[in-house]
């Protein structure tokens, strides 16, 4: 209603001016009868009121819609007047176009993810062949090849997960998961990595705590942090701690290493995509995508992750989980 009055303020003002003009015109023309003058003024105001009432009746849908908060993309029926139905049509058209664009983009994204998945699977077969061929061989050359193959496998996995992340909403399942079992399976799947770099994990778990999460995604995220920790500990320290602390309503997992640490100017940006920092330059093999994925995944899973480090002494990454739903 306010909006309606405001948008017709000029009209009302105009009518009032006109009224005053007519009033004074007749007054100075010699018509000094108040009853006549007020009659003319009254008729004019009545006509104005009639017009406004008519407009309000016809267009009230639009004004209600405009002044209400926007919830969703639906447009209510606006009214039957020419103005209203035209506006309605136009809006619908616009929404249709937007939807179409959105669908096209989504379809493209889908196709991209499918392509990526297929591509990864295609590469996995020759990788399996290489693996099978060199599995029984232990000479240094083959150890080297094994190491490189492992690197490719890690890369593929990261690729797979980062492309799936865009469709996360369709690909996750929150359930009660035992954190210690999850950690054990992480350790199991990275054991070759630990051996290669001679860094040994140690688990300190308070009790067997259940957390609510998606096991697959969380495993991947922890795996990323663990591989980082191992990579930056190699040759400096052979310890990697996986500590679990339990609070009343939170469970905290700390992945603590005694490696090279992260320079203080880099620590704020380690979760940024493609940010590699000084360690990235010093150690190569860094894409700057791993920790970014970790952050994205933990956000989506409703966990938090933070990182602290002192250069030369080590790094600790802390995941925090709600223990209750």
């Amino acid at each position: 209603m306010k909006l309606f009055l405001r948008s017709h303020a000029v009209l009302i003002l105009l009518f009032l001016l006109q009224g005053l003009f007519v009033f004074f015109y007749y007054w100075f023309a010699g018509l000094h009868s108040f009853s006549h003058l007020f009659y003319i003024l009254g008729v004019q105001l009545l006509i104005l009121a009639g017009y406004l009432a008519y407009r309000w009746y016809k267009d009230r849908g639009v004004y209600h819609w405009l002044s209400s908060g926007q919830e969703g993309t639906d447009i209510p029926y606006l009214g039957s007047s020419v103005f209203c139905s035209e506006l309605y049509e136009k809006q619908m058209e616009l929404i249709r176009l937007q939807h179409q664009k959105l669908h096209e983009t989504e379809a493209k994204l889908d196709a991209r993810v499918t392509y990526m998945n297929q591509w990864v699977h295609q590469v996995k077969t020759p990788l399996s062949v290489i693996n099978l061929i060199i599995q029984e061989e232990d000479e240094p050359v083959f150890e080297q090849i094994k190491k490189e193959v492992r690197q490719i496998e890690f890369g593929l996995e990261t690729l797979l997960y980062s492309s799936r992340l865009d469709l996360f909403e369709r690909d996750f399942k929150i359930e009660a998961v035992s954190l210690s079992e999850l950690l054990q399976s992480v350790i199991q799947s990275y054991k070759r990595f630990f051996i290669q770099y001679r860094v040994y994990p140690k688990m300190n778990v308070c009790d067997d705590h259940q957390i609510y999460t998606d096991a697959k995604w969380l495993k991947f995220a922890i795996g990323q942090v663990v591989t980082n920790a191992v990579k930056y500990s190699a040759g400096k320290s052979d310890r990697l701690e996986l500590n679990v602390f339990c609070d009343e309503d939170r469970t905290v997992l700390e992945v603590k290493d005694y490696g090279v640490g992260i320079p203080s100017q880099d620590i704020k940006r380690v979760f940024d995509p493609y940010y590699t920092g000084e360690n990235g330059r010093r150690f190569q093999e860094s894409t700057g995508i791993g920790l970014h994925l970790v952050k994205e995944i933990t956000d989506k899973l409703n966990h938090t992750v933070d990182i602290s480090s002192s250069p030369g002494e080590g790094t600790s990454v802390r995941f925090s989980f709600l223990t209750k739903m």
Binding site: E136, E143, Q188, R192, I195, Y200
Partner: peptide, 23 residues
Amino acid sequence: RGEKVTSRDRLMEKTWDTDIFID
């Protein structure tokens, strides 16, 4: 494996059992 050389890595990997392992 017999006369074939067995790397330390392989031995460690085969005996690795969750968080109990041989360094």
